[in-house]
Design a protein around this nucleic acid. Structure first.
Length: 319
DNA sequence: AACTACCGCAACCGCGGAGAC
DNA sequence: GGTCTCCGCGGTTGCGGTAGT
């Protein structure tokens, strides 16, 4: 145990449970195979619950808390391993917009996923995007960006992949388990008491948001990043932005910065990232329809490629 | 090959609610 | 009603793996 944690434990005078921990010389840190085996065997025979006594009876020198956490987050047979799928990402975004950091509540609607896993996903992926946008993850700007840009894009990707697959609803790489079922059924039952098993009724889909029917997709041949455009056809895109109330806003007041690329497409010397973000903020929550690639940003290079894409679109007059 | 920086995830923590006595 | 104990939640930390230099 490091000094900090030791100090924290010593400060925890009021928690009887932890006082006992110190007296009993309980194990901490990573679980061994033997410990896992003991826990699995005991629970398979006696069931879960009463974690403190369970730990003692199973011969584990662990706190009840530790046993519970290990079982629920890792050893439980229906724990779903592997990457968060597109559908799961969509659900997490939607449910988080409703409930905030109520991870356990959100996890109820993602079978096999633990609150810990969802929390980790949010912290590592979603907050990373917020950081890239230089805005707070709880800010209205970021929430709008998620709602009007990221989530519609996810819907599109889900439906696009569903149309090319043979009935599988899961699209990204993931280790499937017997309980690997599309989670919308439980989502419907829990939230809306709705028998539909597709995603059409999700609030952000029925409120006039961007949908695949109203959009088109093109993959940049140079960067591989996906360009996302409003309108029925590429090339006939309306120069429009969506306000928070779904109303269209004309382009006249929101030209992106013209000065972040030189004539040869090279980067200018000023703080170009800030320039772009200033423009982004200046549209006051209105999301440019072509900026989907924000959510594919994985590196600085990707970011500059995105900026170049935006510039090309400006030059083409479709922005 | 060696080192560093970063990222993802498992495990920990404190806290508060609930239930038993 | 007060105390004790357990449980579950949300926040945080640190380790191990990996990408980058």
């Amino acid at each position: 145990m490091d000094d900090k944690r030791s100090l924290m434990m010593n400060k925890n005078i009021g928690d009887f449970e932890n006082n006992v921990d110190e007296e009993m010389d309980l194990r901490r840190g990573p679980w061994t195979v033997e410990e896992d085996f003991k826990l699995i065997n005991y629970i398979s025979t006696h069931g879960e619950g009463r974690w403190n006594s369970l730990s003692r009876c199973a011969g584990l020198k662990r706190t009840g808390k530790s046993c519970r956490l290990r079982w629920l987050n890792y050893l439980r047979p229906d724990v779903r391993r592997g990457n968060i799928t597109l559908e799961e990402q969509l659900l997490i975004l939607e449910l988080h917009s409703r409930w905030g950091n109520r991870w356990s509540k959100i996890a109820q609607y993602l079978p096999g996923r633990t609150d810990n896993e969802i929390k980790n996903y949010w912290r590592t992926r979603v907050q990373k995007h917020a950081k890239q946008l230089r805005c707070d993850v709880n800010s209205q700007q970021f929430k709008d960006t998620m709602r009007y840009l990221w989530m519609p894009r996810l819907v599109e990707r889900i439906q696009a992949s569903a149309s090319t697959s043979t009935g599988s609803a899961t699209t990204s790489s993931c280790v499937t388990t017997p309980s690997d079922q599309f989670m919308m059924t439980s989502y419907d039952d829990g939230l809306n008491n709705n028998s539909n098993t597709n995603m059409e009724h999700l609030s952000f889909m029925s409120n006039g948001y961007v949908t695949p029917e109203t959009s088109s997709v093109a993959v940049s041949p140079t960067s591989g990043l996906t360009e996302y455009q409003m309108g029925s056809e590429v090339g006939k895109v309306e120069n429009s932005y969506y306000n928070q109330d779904q109303s269209l806003v004309g382009p006249q007041n929101m030209s992106p910065p013209q000065n972040y690329l030189d004539d040869n497409g090279g980067l200018l010397s000023e703080d170009l990232t800030q320039s772009y973000h200033n423009w982004f903020e200046n549209v006051n929550g209105m999301i440019p329809p072509n900026s989907d690639s924000f959510w594919n940003i994985g590196s600085d290079e990707d970011f500059w490629l995105l900026l170049q894409q935006q510039q090309q679109l400006v030059n083409n007059g479709s922005f």
